[in-house]
Design a protein around this nucleic acid. Structure first.
Lengths: 191, 191
DNA sequence: GGCATTTATAGACTGCCGTATGATAATTCA
DNA sequence: TGAATTATCATACGGCAGTCTATAAATGCC
């Protein structure tokens, strides 16, 4: 959003932003992304149409903001200080992600959908959702390498893509993402 | 499309179908999927609006049909009779796919997009595009196993997902898919 | 207080989507 | 030939998107 808050002029009504996000998220969670119209959202928030467009360019961006601010979808970084095997850490981390995916599959699907046609949105989604999770895996793999749990010549970048690709591939194709997949992946990484 | 051709009544005008597909594909290739409206397509084909809806439920399905029938996007099955190493066969096969992806990335992106909101479409896309390619890789890996080029306890299903996930993951996130990725993947599979 | 600046609102406008309707055309069957 | 069936066409409709305009409201600055 990069507010830039200009000191002069009528200030933005933060209550309107909040109301829009709350209404949007509630409607989407309840009826599904595509079934919710922008008209519906602004009416529900008791706010003028233009006010929404003053803040977000698309429904996808609004819902993305609402999703991250109001739903609790932060991932927990695995504790690299612990002595737990890195294979277990990875497996647990993936299980955590898969739980979210199961719950938010439809919303995430709509984000992926929006990202294909709106490259600006794609970048935001990538930065806020995809990349942070990929970073964690990358760090975890490097740590495992430095501890000697992983072959030192493993192609970390490629394996990060393997791991994330495996479940994104299932997600976009509408296949279930069972918890056990986390174990299978972790086993194969550390074999 | 499962025609079911009923013998009675006025027959469908095949020329209209062809015209619609040609116009749709041309417009999409030229302007991009989202920039093309249904109204534009039917006008361009000189056909009534209803005629399009008699044949396809959505723009995505029409374009999908056009894409597969008019563009030449068949993949070539690697020759499992040849004595070439399976690693090379895999690498070459992937390079072939990556070339298509580079050319059709935007169209494919719009298919992925449509698939997220339309589950019927998702299944068609999966059946006609994704699954055939995954099958080939699966067969290739099994063949490599039977020839002793691949560890017999490798999890074929998982690796098929790894391989496809790796480039789908890049595709949906708008990252380039360099030819060299094919080599990297094949190396890691057969290491 | 007057002015520039920014936001908010209501309403209108164009274009498109998906559906519906009524009329007409092309074909098979009895 | 006439009835039944299906396809096509022109047209219209309600709903939504995204843009635009005119007007009012809230703030900082001089």
């Amino acid at each position: 959003m990069s507010q830039e808050k200009s000191s002069v002029g009528r200030p933005k009504n933060e209550a309107a932003s909040t109301a829009l996000k709350e209404v949007a998220l509630n409607l989407v969670m309840q009826k599904g992304y595509d079934a919710v119209s922008i008209t519906e959202i602004v009416n529900g928030a008791g706010v003028s149409r233009q006010t929404l467009y003053n803040r977000w360019a698309t429904k996808a961006e609004l819902v993305l903001d609402a999703f991250f601010e109001l739903a609790n979808r932060r991932v927990e970084m695995p504790d690299l200080k612990s002595q737990t095997s890195r294979q277990t850490l990875l497996s647990d981390f993936l299980k955590q992600i898969f739980l979210h995916l199961e719950k938010d599959g439809d919303s995430l699907g709509s984000f992926v959908s929006a990202a294909q046609s709106d490259h600006d949105f794609r970048e935001k989604f990538y930065t806020r959702f995809v990349a942070p999770r990929a970073d964690i895996v990358r760090k975890l793999l490097k740590d495992a390498q430095s501890r000697g749990e992983l072959a030192p010549d493993k192609n970390i970048e490629l394996w990060t893509a393997f791991i994330h690709g495996a479940f994104w591939y299932r997600l976009i194709n509408g296949q279930p993402i069972p918890q056990d997949l986390a174990n299978e992946i972790a086993e194969e990484v550390f074999r």
